[in-house]
Design a protein around this nucleic acid. Structure first.
Lengths: 112, 112
DNA sequence: CTGTATCCACCTTGATACTG
DNA sequence: CAGTATCAAGGTGGATACAG
């Protein structure tokens, strides 16, 4: 069993990265992991993402069945987004990233 | 304690993403997590990354103290890369990504 | 072998204005 | 509020040639 070049792990990793690529996808999913949110809420929560990017990345997440989109019949239209059950399978990854990021911040501050 | 806009988690997440952004960084670290590798080995292992990109991303990883670079005194110069102990703190995140990717692949094949 | 330098096509992102 | 259209700008990444 000689380890051949593109290992299965590497391919899997690339698959995962393809789906999560984009500047805001992880942040969006992180925000949604707490609770469902409306478009504008999401925008405020994620930070300085433009409506265009938020819209685009949400659409991609929806296509990959990581996020559900619900249009509500309100006066000015309201749209809610939430993680699908499949999207929730990524929560563990995201939480690991967050906790690493928190540790990393402390480290940075120490050295600064 | 009203939850204010850019939550600490979100900031931490963005910090982490900043460091890991780039098409190949995660793949590089994944490959190095198995064992230290030379430049060319790494290139073969990661897949179809060009030397330029590999070099650039390795440099960035080095700057963030995630990877160590050793130049060996061999005839044609040899360089070895390995994860720093700090870089290893990211292994958990990477493994989660890989395992998610593996599950995701199965899911895709089923639906195809 | 391990890079760096240059050129360049392409894509991503942002700003802004606009629609329903 | 939610989303789209358009334009501009910068970054990304590939090919190639070359240096140490």
């Amino acid at each position: 069993m000689t380890e051949k070049l593109p290992s299965k792990d590497m391919l899997a990793l690339c698959d995962a990265m393809d789906i999560l690529n984009g500047k805001w996808k992880i942040a969006i999913m992180c925000s949604l992991s707490q609770k469902k949110k409306r478009f504008k809420e999401l925008q405020r929560d994620v930070g300085k993402v433009t409506g265009k990017m938020l819209s685009k990345e949400l659409k991609e997440l929806e296509m990959n069945e990581l996020v559900n989109r619900y249009v509500l019949n309100t006066k000015p239209v309201t749209v809610e987004y939430e993680l699908t059950s499949y999207g929730k399978t990524l929560e563990k990854v995201i939480m690991e990233l967050v906790s690493w990021g928190l540790r990393h911040r402390k480290r940075i501050l120490r050295k600064k």
